[in-house]
Amino acid sequence: MNFFKRGMIFVTFFGSCLVLGLIVAALGTKFWVVARAKRVSNPDESDGRINFGLFQGRKDLNVAYGWRTYPIDMLELMRTDRELLVHGLWVGTVGCLAASLLFVTLAAVFAVINTATTPAGALAGAPGLFVWNCAALVLNVTAVALWGVQFFQKLQHNVMSQEDRDNQWYSEHMASLGYSFWFVVAAVVMLTVNIVVLYVGVARTREKKSPEPMLEEKTNGAIMLY
């Protein structure tokens, strides 16, 4: 394996580390959705700010008597309020991100191995790097798509719990996708860059190797002529 190819593969190691950080941040932060809220009875005096991630969140509500802060436990909320989210879309989003962490970790580990040596097996070598990065890319794209469906199907219309809805709170058309979601989009972009870098490194190496059989054939012909 030539120096250029090793260098390009090592670049993907840093890309994989960045993707790992983005996915972990997306899973751990609380801003997959951000929204404002009002009360039907006094919309001019009331105000609410809500944000939550896949597991935790926070809501600040003001009914004209001052702000009050409440934590949001998404697992508990989904258990008590079946109408808030599509449970299958939430499970799919979390599952895709968790699986992508595994594949990105494999991509990072094998990028280091391929930089230091030339593994014998295909999955441990450059073909495997394509597999791990492509699998992670597909999983992250799927997570983005699932949460997009979740948002447009449910969350853009309401992010308030049943208890809040009973107290006349509403958030329709006041919600947007938060930065935790965009971390996953950034991971998709970075994985695409990784795949392009791998392709450039492998393709250039093949281009350099392709004339060698012709040179060998000419050398053999010259020997026979002699």
Rank of each mutant, 00 (worst) to 15 (best):
residue 122 A to V: 07
residue 199 Y to N: 00
residue 53 G to T: 07
residue 162 Q to N: 11
residue 192 T to D: 03
residue 131 V to P: 00
residue 121 G to D: 13
residue 44 D to V: 03
residue 91 V to L: 15
residue 37 A to F: 03
residue 139 L to Y: 05
residue 45 E to H: 01
residue 86 V to Q: 11
residue 48 G to L: 02
residue 21 G to L: 10
residue 7 G to I: 04
residue 175 A to K: 06
residue 143 A to S: 12
residue 21 G to R: 01
residue 165 R to G: 09
residue 48 G to F: 03
residue 167 N to S: 15
residue 43 P to W: 03
residue 1 M to C: 05
residue 204 R to V: 01
residue 74 M to F: 11
residue 82 R to M: 06
residue 97 L to E: 15
residue 69 T to I: 11
residue 23 I to Y: 01
residue 39 R to P: 00
residue 127 P to M: 03
residue 39 R to K: 15
residue 53 G to Q: 10
residue 74 M to K: 11
residue 78 M to V: 03
residue 73 D to A: 09
residue 127 P to H: 01
residue 180 S to F: 13
residue 158 N to S: 14
residue 201 G to Q: 00
residue 99 A to Q: 03
residue 134 C to W: 05
residue 23 I to T: 07
residue 177 L to F: 11
residue 160 M to C: 15
residue 121 G to A: 14
residue 69 T to D: 06
residue 142 T to A: 15
residue 211 P to F: 08
residue 96 C to I: 03
residue 124 A to S: 15
residue 91 V to S: 09
residue 84 L to R: 14
residue 129 L to H: 08
residue 223 I to L: 15
residue 31 F to G: 07
residue 195 I to L: 15
residue 88 G to H: 04
residue 150 Q to V: 01
residue 186 A to G: 02
residue 25 A to H: 07
residue 154 K to Y: 02
residue 1 M to R: 07
residue 66 G to R: 05
residue 42 N to T: 13
residue 77 L to Q: 14
residue 133 N to K: 04
residue 140 N to G: 02
residue 137 L to C: 08
residue 224 M to S: 14
residue 53 G to L: 14
residue 203 A to L: 05
residue 152 F to G: 04
residue 128 G to P: 02
residue 139 L to N: 09
residue 205 T to W: 12
residue 29 T to V: 05
residue 153 Q to D: 10
residue 28 G to P: 00
